[in-house]
């Protein structure tokens, strides 16, 4: 087997995550799908790191994790406060971005 397969897997996971973002309405699940996409990217970075034989890819993946952690904290805080004010976690309920 060639490590390229990891890339195929990552592409598959990324696409599944993206489709989830588009399909699901529960903000928390949407958020999880975003995390899935980030993880797919991390897998790509790690696989490339191995292919090219240097550690920079892993460093980027590491930073991705850190930023994802910050993002999750903020995102979940937004979801909680949104739920508190609207009593719903559906992304479709917050449809104020229109005329």
């Amino acid at each position: 087997m060639n490590p390229v397969n990891y890339l195929y897997l990552a592409a598959l996971l990324f696409t599944i995550g993206a489709s989830g973002v588009l399909i699901r309405r529960n903000a928390i699940v949407v958020f999880m799908c975003v995390e899935l996409m980030l993880n797919a990217c991390n897998l790509t970075l790690v696989a490339f790191s191995r292919m090219h034989g240097n550690l920079d890819g892993q460093i980027i993946a590491f930073f991705t994790m850190v930023v994802a952690a910050a993002e999750v904290v903020i995102g979940l805080a937004i979801i909680v406060s949104l739920f508190r004010s609207r009593h719903s976690a559906s992304v479709d309920d917050a449809s104020l971005m229109k005329l």
């Binding site: 973002v21 588009l22 309405r25 992304v91 479709d92 917050a94 449809s95 104020l96 971005m97 229109k98």
Partner: peptide, 17 residues
């Protein structure tokens, strides 16, 4: 075109995707 802008974040996400 305005109807494309329906306020649903998921519709916008489809456009981005």
């Amino acid at each position: 075109l305005r109807k494309l802008q329906n306020g649903y974040a998921r519709s916008y996400a489809v456009s981005m995707f």
